[in-house]
């Protein structure tokens, strides 16, 4: 029963990791950009949530109504203002520039919010749980997992059933020909980053409700996101969810054996899968 419990908790934790990863996956799929600042953007969203909840006294989930549009706007602006200029045949410039962005965000957060750990207060939601067949499941992890499934489904639907998704796929296939069809690639990239950071806002707020955070934790979230994307296979959003779940389960099972092994066992699972399937479990884009 204890092991089953660890398995279920790990699965639910995987939902959060999938949310960390979904934005990375989307951005890589549309513009082949590896965003090193992604983890710091998650933390930035958590801090924006903190400001909204403390100044307006809103519940963190309600704060999403402001944080999501704000992150989307930041995404569009950063993409058009900075990142578009770095995209080209060479993969190095976007890596360097997003690394720089990561440093800027971390230091900006330190300056404004200090290094003190913070947490978002979601009141009763944090401790509420439901009993399912002898297991006690936290309402928050359940909600997080449900949101993750909904987000992945929504992104998938957007990709394959809307004009915006068609534009994302066309630009991803062939930027020059897409431009010939009247699609302005810099604008489409801006929209993709806006969508990715709207998802990041969800991830940041749910992270901030679940655990305490400080400006330095972005790097760790980036790694979890990367691992989920790569386990699942590049370009496959449902694969990303599966990757998040595998990572979450590996971590909770590892922690069950020895609490110190939580993060390590996630990395080991990642490396094992990479050794057996270098392209991840369900790749859509060949690396």
């Amino acid at each position: 029963m204890e092991w089953l419990n660890a398995l279920v908790q790990g699965t639910l934790l995987g939902g959060l990791y999938a949310l960390f990863a979904a934005g990375l996956s989307l951005i890589f799929g549309v513009m082949r950009l590896v965003n090193i600042a992604h983890g710091d953007l998650i933390v930035l969203a958590a801090y924006l949530g903190l400001s909204v909840t403390t100044t307006l006294g809103l519940h963190p989930l309600l704060a999403l109504l402001m944080v999501m549009p704000a992150m989307a706007a930041i995404g569009y602006a950063v993409q058009r203002g900075v990142l578009n200029q770095t995209l080209g045949d060479d993969l190095l410039p976007p890596l360097l520039v997003t690394f720089g962005l990561s440093v800027i965000i971390q230091n900006g957060l330190l300056e404004v919010y200090t290094a003190d750990p913070q947490k978002l207060n979601a009141g009763a939601l944090e401790t509420a749980s439901v009993a399912v067949g002898g297991l006690s499941l936290g309402l928050l992890p359940l909600l997080t997992f449900g949101i993750a499934v909904a987000v992945i489904w929504g992104l998938q639907w957007t990709f394959y059933h809307t004009a915006l998704g068609r534009a994302f796929r066309a630009v991803s296939d062939n930027q020059d020909i897409a431009q010939l069809m009247g699609l302005i690639r810099h604008h489409i990239f801006g929209l993709a980053m806006a969508l990715a950071l709207a998802v990041t806002a969800l991830a940041g707020i749910l992270l901030g409700v679940r655990t305490s955070f400080d400006p330095s934790i972005g790097g760790g979230r980036l790694i979890f996101g990367f691992e989920a994307v790569i386990i699942g296979g590049l370009g496959n959003l449902w694969g990303t969810l599966a990757g998040g779940v595998i990572l979450g389960v590996a971590q909770t099972l590892g922690a069950k054996i020895d609490p110190g092994w939580q993060v390590l066992s996630g990395h080991i699972a990642f490396l094992l899968i990479l050794a057996v399937r270098p392209n991840g479990l369900f790749p859509r884009i060949s690396a």
């Binding site: 796929r169 066309a170 991803s172 296939d173 069809m181 302005i184």
Partner: peptide
Amino acid sequence: RADQVAKTGIALVPEGRQLFPSL
């Protein structure tokens, strides 16, 4: 830019077809 030219009413059937494979 290509998108602006397209709006003026010029279309290209490119060498090698170049359809979008994901579509």
